[in-house]
Amino acid sequence: MNYHINDLPERTAKPRNKGLTMVMDKGLSLRQVEDFIEMGAGYSDLIKLGWATSYVSPNLDAKLKLYKDAGLPVYFGGTLFEAMIVRGQFDDYCRILDKYQMEYCEVSDGSITIEHDEKCEYIRKLSKQITVISEVGSKDVQKVFAPYKWIKLMNAEIEAGSWKVIAEARESGNVGIYRDSGEVRQGLVDEILTQIPEETIIWEAPQKAQQVWFIKLIGANVSLGNIAPADIIPLETLRLGIRSDTFEHFLK
């Protein structure tokens, strides 16, 4: 830090197991990646190349190298996994992971319908060779799961080999753990936290109000995902209580 301020909440140090910030890259150029790394690499833990943008992104190899050289793990969004699974291309998907020397992957079923046992089997297979992050929840605003089902699915995926489970919200923050207005489904989150260790969950929280809510509930070291590159510095100030939204929360 540039100078000292007393009594700020203690942040976990990188490489972190909790207090993660997962950044959503929806198609940054190489120059934008370089600019992001200059300002945000120290506060970022994972980079997700959103949904299947890796299929159409120019200079993919160069982009991956920039992130990896900066010490930032990268993975392809879960929709790529789904797009290939639904077409019977699991082996091709594995070859893509190998080709780009990916160390992480995301297993999700937010856009397709598969048996959960089948999803867990994919997690088991992939976790033998790569770190798996799995996502629970649907991208369909009409599909609302009861809390017990979220808990059951998360537990099963952790047992199958997921390193972390993501609570679905999309990049818009209006499905899954949120109402279509963006408001947190507080009862759902409270129920999940009675059964699932909070350090195993990455809460997708693209909106500032959502980030503030989770920081106030869990603390500075809550793991948050789908953060826009431009929001990395603002989010870190929220975590430290040096922005008005969380300013009083961390004062002793």
Rank of each mutant, 00 (worst) to 15 (best):
G78E: 06
L97T: 10
K216T: 06
G19Q: 04
K252H: 15
A230F: 05
K152R: 09
V141M: 04
Y55T: 15
V141N: 07
F145K: 07
K125S: 05
F90D: 00
F81R: 04
G88A: 07
P58V: 12
Q195Y: 12
F76L: 13
P197T: 03
R87M: 11
Q195G: 00
V136S: 09
E183N: 15
E135Y: 11
V136R: 08
G19A: 04
H249Y: 14
I158A: 08
L72M: 12
K125Y: 00
A230Y: 02
S57I: 10
K119I: 00
I215E: 06
R179H: 15
H116G: 07
T194Y: 01
L46R: 01
S138M: 05
V132P: 08
S44H: 01
M84A: 00
D245C: 00
Y3A: 15
I96T: 14
A70S: 12
L238C: 07
N221D: 14
Q207K: 15
G161S: 10
T194Q: 13
I112E: 11
T21M: 11
I215A: 04
G241R: 07
V132R: 10
Q32F: 02
G187H: 11
Y67W: 14
D92M: 04
M22Y: 01
I96M: 15
F250I: 09
S108C: 14
I215H: 07
A62M: 13
M39Q: 12
I215W: 05
Y43I: 05
K252E: 15
V165M: 11
V144P: 02
K152P: 00
M1Y: 08
E204L: 04
R239K: 14
E191F: 00
M1D: 11
D180Y: 12
D7H: 14
D245M: 02
L72K: 04
W203R: 01
E106G: 04
A70P: 07
L238F: 05
L153H: 08
A156F: 01
P15Q: 11
Q186F: 02
Q195H: 14
I151T: 05
R170W: 01
V184S: 02
A169T: 03
F247E: 04
L217G: 02
